[in-house]
Design a protein around this nucleic acid. Structure first.
Lengths: 334, 334
DNA sequence: CTGAAAGCGCTTACAG
DNA sequence: CTGAAAGCGCTTACAG
């Protein structure tokens, strides 16, 4: 049978301990000088009696809310929904670790009303903008209001905090692994150029070559591979040049290449190795399963949250930022 | 060029107007006696100078947060994700209308830690439990803590607030429409019995018959129609009995029945009408498109939110509760 | 190292 | 109808 426990305030604690509220406050926050003896005594009491400081009151005194907002677009493609869900997951998890909570703000593309409301009401200390709402009207507004924020996805504008998949680093790692496995002539099949991902992934590909002292053959880099026909043409040249491995920039290209190779009756991995710089469920089920880079969206969300926490003055171990990608070695590079 | 506007407090407003804080507070809240003259004056000033009361301070004084929590399961089937997304959408929209914000709490099935945290920190005034976390351990906890909450989905336990699709009412309406369109012998093909939806939908079906004075033929009600074979058997009996319409309990059954009718070369709607008591994208694309009941998950979310608002003492127009279903008349009942 | 006191920006009995 | 004052539960200069 549970006894109805009364809800303690800081005054109660102070009284029962025969010290001042100041002292209790200091013991809890760790700020200000206090003898370790009294600190222990206070902390002990708090634990036993399960005292929980009132966050609202603390907030009022410090003008903080210990809430952050996650701005989610209302109008997104069905395929994106799990991206946002995973982001949210990571953000909530990390926020909870710092005893913050996550307020959801749903916005129609260019509509600022909900963001305005949450800011006017001072309900949050900082804001996370999820990918699709990277439009600058909202960013401008936040800068004007001097509200700390971070964007998920690359942002051109300097001075704005953002987090993104570390495509370059990841590509470098996967490429490096292939080179170390003994491949020497790797081809790279890119998607449409002009996108940042394309450039990052290529940079990683080249960097790995440079670091390992295996010069990359520029003639084996094919851009704009956005159709089966182009894929086929590239594959033919790759075979002719006797490359021993093909790196595709994403799962879409990978699938086309697999088709081409099948059509030409070239066996993977025995005759040529294959890897993708972007993972998808598909790749695992292919024959053979294709080695690829997996990006962890939940970790991305965590990173966004950590960046914001840092902006809000929380102490962050740099090591806490989780790795966001993972090389998944499958049969295609055996 | 924006001028740096200072953030007004209630004291500033009071001073500038030459009245007391009490008066300003009353003008805003509408509580307590105040002359309409002064009220107008205060309100006017507030609007012009864009004064926004500090919700935190208000909260501390009233021990309220003007936040509610939406508890979301972390482990759900992929097919459910859009359900939760739409719920969330509706909840956020309605909460905003009452100037509340929605805090997200993600929980692993039986794990209470996150819920505990948000409650211990007094970060929310009430809680919405989304469908999959209807497990009673969390509900028991909330009752113990005397935290107002509402569950999305039917709950057996009396005294617990819940909202759900109004299956009975909706079924009654669709059935009624069919009867009024001139059909007289309607068959009902049910799924597995024992489920609440099954019973609600049947009840609605029967109720419509009773109200319109067209007795339902019990021999035309088939339960446990969970395979093509059973569907076929039912359809044969329906045809033999010369029914003029078939009501299927969900889209799955409807699809099977469509198959059966096609196999038997019975044309819909010319030889027999067809309707489904549950909509899906599929039904629209069928030949012919099938009349059905559409349930609006966003509205369900709104209803959950409204129920909670009422529990929290907000004034709610009963009419505000949005209708959650809609009869979609398509070719199959023409 | 510790505490009394003022302050965060509201609300609300209470008195007039 | 209006206002002075106490209170919500914390933090934090300031003084000792």
């Amino acid at each position: 049978m549970k006894t109805e426990e009364k809800v303690y305030t800081i005054s109660d604690v102070a009284d029962e301990l025969g010290v001042s509220k100041t002292t209790v406050s200091r013991a809890i926050s760790g700020k200000g000088r206090i003898s370790s003896q009294t600190r222990e005594r206070v902390l002990e009491f708090i634990k036993v009696h399960d005292y929980q400081p009132n966050v609202l009151a603390k907030g009022l005194a410090q003008s903080k809310t210990f809430n952050l907002a996650l701005v989610l677009p209302m109008d997104f493609a069905g395929s994106e929904i799990s991206f946002f869900q995973e982001c949210m997951h990571g953000i909530c998890e990390m926020a909870a670790a710092y005893n913050y909570d996550v307020v959801i703000v749903m916005t129609e593309s260019e509509d600022l009303t909900q963001v305005r409301r949450v800011i006017a009401n001072r309900k949050v200390d900082g804001i996370i903008l999820s990918r699709s709402v990277t439009d600058s009207s909202i960013q401008r507004f936040l800068r004007e209001k001097k509200m700390p924020f971070v964007v998920i996805g690359y942002v051109e504008h300097s001075g704005i905090h953002w987090v993104d998949n570390r495509n370059q680093e990841a590509s470098k790692e996967l490429t490096g692994i292939m080179l170390m496995k003994g491949m020497h002539r790797l081809a790279l099949l890119e998607g449409n150029s002009g996108f940042r991902v394309t450039e990052s992934r290529r940079a990683g590909f080249l960097e790995a070559h440079k670091e390992l002292g295996t010069p990359a053959d520029e003639s084996l880099i094919f851009s704009e591979v956005d159709s089966y026909l182009k894929a086929m043409k590239a594959v033919e040249q790759v075979l002719e040049a006797e490359a021993d491995g093909i790196v595709c920039m994403d799962d879409y290209i990978t699938n086309m290449v697999l088709g081409c190779l099948r059509e030409k009756r070239i066996a993977v991995p025995s005759q040529i190795k294959l890897a993708s710089l972007y993972d998808s469920q598909q790749l695992e089920k292919n024959t053979p399963p294709v080695t690829s880079l997996h990006f962890d969206t939940r970790a991305l969300g965590k990173n966004a949250c950590l960046d914001l926490m840092a902006q809000l003055g929380e102490k962050i171990d740099q090591e806490k930022f989780p790795m966001n990608y993972q090389v998944i070695l499958r049969e295609s590079t055996k």
